[in-house]
Design a protein around this nucleic acid. Sequence first.
DNA 1: GCGATTATATCGCAGAGCGATATAAATGCC
DNA 2: GGCATTTATATCGCTCTGCGATATAATCGC
Lengths: 147, 147
Amino acid sequence: MADERLTVAEYRALAEFRCQLRRLLRFSEDAARGAGLEPQHHQVLLALRGMPDGTAATIGVLADRLQLRHHTMVELIDRMAARNLVRRRPGTTDRRQVVVRLTPRGERVLPRLSLAHRAELRAVAPALLRSLAALTGDRPGRAVRGR
Amino acid sequence: MADERLTVAEYRALAEFRCQLRRLLRFSEDAARGAGLEPQHHQVLLALRGMPDGTAATIGVLADRLQLRHHTMVELIDRMAARNLVRRRPGTTDRRQVVVRLTPRGERVLPRLSLAHRAELRAVAPALLRSLAALTGDRPGRAVRGR
DNA sequence: GCGATTATATCGCAGAGCGATATAAATGCC
DNA sequence: GGCATTTATATCGCTCTGCGATATAATCGC
């Protein structure tokens, strides 16, 4: 309950962090559109490709990974299937479930995008860490337990 | 031109980072809606409150801070003005410009949200840093020059 | 078997973002 | 000063996105 008010500097730090984050997301959106994808479609493709071990990519699991309501994911998968990026397959054990798979087209479009994202992340990480550190009170590049 | 292909582990690391990011953004969206705001409206309020020193909050400047096209910001400000969150004021020196100001209501709603965001950022920063480090090759909490 | 739960789907709606285009003020050039 | 160019906002029509409410079907508990 301490610290009930933020200083001007803290509002600036919060705004600055969001600005950094937006620049990163903007890069991602532009990269996706440049590859002929909607930004959200790219997120689903990546989630499919980077699924944790042994987890089936059902609608519900994908909705959780992208932090969306399940019916939002249903609609997203509808649009992506219409563009031949993914395909639905009925679940084997539980017939209520629907498993989503990448199509060859979906597989093809991802590598270039992911390479570009890794490069961009490496490039902007320092700035991102700096503005995050300004908020959490850590000093970048030094010992952390000082406060 | 080295490293032209990503490993499965790297796809997973990318997906994991995006998942962390989405959880953070989701928290922010939920917090904004819980305060009776659209998520984007919250972003504009924060940008206004955390404006860098001596910069006038024109439509163009705001569009840059939120990484949106200017006409998207025009529409956003339209909707926010209709909800009495901000007000337009004609620019003094350049009469083409429009300066955006917070209304008392816009001022009132922000502090609680920003406090919650600072707390959340402090809470999730370690997980975020870890998944970012997995991509940039840094080892969290250890020496960094090892690779 | 049967009510409760879970997984996906459908519907109607509003916010968001974009490209194309428009308008008005400021600027550069002569 | 006059006029083309540039800059700052605004308007229009569109699609994607995301939600709540509701529906359907399979599974689970007992």
